[in-house]
């Protein structure tokens, strides 16, 4: 089921993960690979280099296109109903929000539909059995921005679970910041500074 060989694949989303999926599908021998993104090329969150590489490898991009419904039955996708979009007014973040063009929808054949719409944090306080571990409204862990220490003393957090989905290079940075804070704290605990 997770192999694209011989299939018509549609990937929904425009980030780096979507690019990884379309290019993997090409290499698995998919019959066709289409990427659906609701904004245009200029407003894609993914790296322009990766989009160019995907295009060279034969991926078809449907810009300004958003899924309206997954066709087929509950167990198997048979296609997508796609709405045509245009870029409307800028939203609060300054990005122009995609708005549907009425009557512009069409159907796209697909044996395999992949959603690459981004990632959210899991419910760590629940998974870890630790309700005292505080999270933000987004579900990421709440930390002291200087030390990356969480609401639990001696427990630190770094990378995407604090930042939300981001780049590897930011994760490395966070790991280094947390390591420095942990080392400083543990050295102090091992050898307390004498009271004056």
């Amino acid at each position: 089921m997770l192999d694209a060989a011989g299939k018509k694949v549609v990937v929904v989303g425009g980030g780096d993960t979507a690019m990884d999926c379309v290019r993997t599908a090409v290499r698995q021998g998919a019959k066709s690979v289409t990427c659906l993104y609701r904004r245009d090329r200029k407003n894609m969150p993914g790296s322009a280099r990766e989009v160019a590489n995907a295009e060279e490898e034969g991926v078809i991009f449907e810009w300004l296109a958003a899924p309206k419904a997954v066709l087929g039955d509950a167990a198997r996708a048979a296609g997508l109903r796609v709405a045509r979009m245009e870029l409307g007014e800028a939203d609060a973040t300054g990005r122009r929000a995609p708005v549907e063009i009425p009557g512009g929808e069409c159907d796209l054949d697909a044996d395999m539909v992949i959603k690459a719409l981004g990632f959210e944090p899991e419910d760590l306080p629940h998974m870890f059995g630790e309700p005292a571990l505080k999270t933000t409204a987004r579900g990421t862990l709440r930390v002291n921005p200087q030390t990356l220490e969480t609401s639990l003393a001696g427990v630190y957090a770094a990378g995407d679970i604090v930042r939300g989905a981001s780049l590897v290079v930011w994760a490395i940075r966070d790991g280094r910041v947390a390591a420095a804070a942990i080392a400083a704290q543990l050295k102090l605990a091992a050898q307390p500074i004498a009271a004056e």
């Binding site: 989303g13 309206k68 997954v70 996708a77 992949i114 959603k115 959210e120 899991e122 862990l141 630190y156």
Partner: peptide, 28 residues
Amino acid sequence: DAVLIATGVYKARDLVCPGGGNQGVIAA
């Protein structure tokens, strides 16, 4: 003596449309 949580974010955002929750829709 100290614990660092670096679990990443793994939960896929859902496709919000009819059929978006079908089994045939695969998480990236």
